[in-house]
């Protein structure tokens, strides 16, 4: 990974020095070993801080939303999952391809710096740092699907099957059991909206949850409003979630959001597929639920 890190640094320095990009999104090292966090480099000098290591887990494609209104050209590093996020943004017309310089990295799986922080914090007990972050144990696309330059050697998908099994378990519950499961799961939610903020598919300019006139979803932290929040968000993710797993990773109260997203991806694939979100960039490509076809299924979904 050292080699990749050095290469990224070189590429970023070159692009910034030549003026090919105005900003280059990558990572820098924090004060501790397990602390790697996003960096927006604006000069070749800034680029010297760049690192890519086993904690470079953040999906940087999400940061592109901060730049969508300008004309600045952006360089960024993407892993497999993050690259699908770029396709999400391109399909959603949030960015044009010519404003991006994409450095793809074939990803062996990352560790989660947030989890490491929690373990070291003294505030929690009984959690261990896994070799791979949860989201990286359910990764079907470790290799970037869109890039200008590709680094690292091709990686095999690492899908543990655990998530699939959990989805099936929920599918097999009785409606009452399932309602109970979701009630309990979402009662923990503190409505910090970190799942939305970390999500590249959550790119609406005004989010429905921020609408005040009318206010579509109540702001009380209770069963009804929490369920409503997650239900609405889930439906907005159907066929659009690129399964980067950032929502679940950043959740401060460990809500298993990827179970919902996996179920939606599975259903969309089954009823309107074969379809997987953000795996191939085509001019004017659209997610499955954004197009209508006479062959679309009337069964099952919604």
């Amino acid at each position: 990974m050292k080699e990749i890190s050095t290469k990224i640094k070189e590429i970023a320095s070159r692009l910034l020095a030549d003026g090919q990009v105005n900003v280059f999104l990558a990572w820098e090292k924090g004060p501790e070993d397990h602390l790697t966090h996003p960096l927006a480099a604006r000069s070749a000098e800034d680029a010297q801080k760049i690192v890519f290591d086993e904690y470079s887990i953040h999906n940087l494609s999400n940061y592109l939303l901060k730049f969508r209104d300008g004309h600045e050209k952006i360089g960024l590093v993407v892993k497999g999952c993050d690259s699908r996020g770029i396709i999400r943004l391109l399909e959603d017309n949030q960015f044009t391809r010519d404003r991006l310089y994409i450095v793809g990295v074939c990803c062996p799986g990352m560790k989660d710096p947030l989890k490491a922080m929690k373990i070291n914090s003294g505030l929690l007990q009984d959690i261990a740092l896994d070799d791979k972050a949860d989201k990286c144990s359910n990764c079907a696309y470790p290799n970037p699907v869109i890039y200008d330059e590709l680094l690292g050697s091709e990686q095999q998908p690492h899908v543990s099957g655990e998530r699939k099994a959990q989805v099936e378990e929920i599918e097999n519950m009785s409606p009452d059991q399932r309602y109970g499961f979701f009630q309990e799961t979402f009662s923990k939610c503190i409505r910090c909206y970190a799942c939305r903020q970390a999500c590249v598919a959550c790119n609406c300019r005004t989010c429905i949850f921020d609408e005040m006139r009318p206010q579509w979803v109540g702001r009380e932290n209770n069963e009804t409003d929490n369920l409503m929040y997650h239900l609405v968000r889930a439906y907005h993710m159907a066929g659009r979630c690129v399964e980067c797993g950032e929502c679940e990773r950043v959740c401060p109260v460990d809500i298993p959001l990827m179970l919902i997203n996996s179920k939606l991806a599975k259903d969309v694939n089954e009823f309107f597929g074969p379809y997987e979100a953000g795996i191939k960039y085509e001019q004017d490509g659209k997610p499955a639920l954004s197009v209508y076809s006479l062959e679309d299924s009337d069964e099952g979904f919604i």
Binding site: A40, K66, C192, Y193, R196, V250, P252
Partner: peptide, 13 residues
């Protein structure tokens, strides 16, 4: 603020 994702975790914890 460049890398802040603008969620409310900090304010709620």
């Amino acid at each position: 603020s460049q890398t802040c994702q603008n969620c409310g975790i900090c304010t709620y914890v």
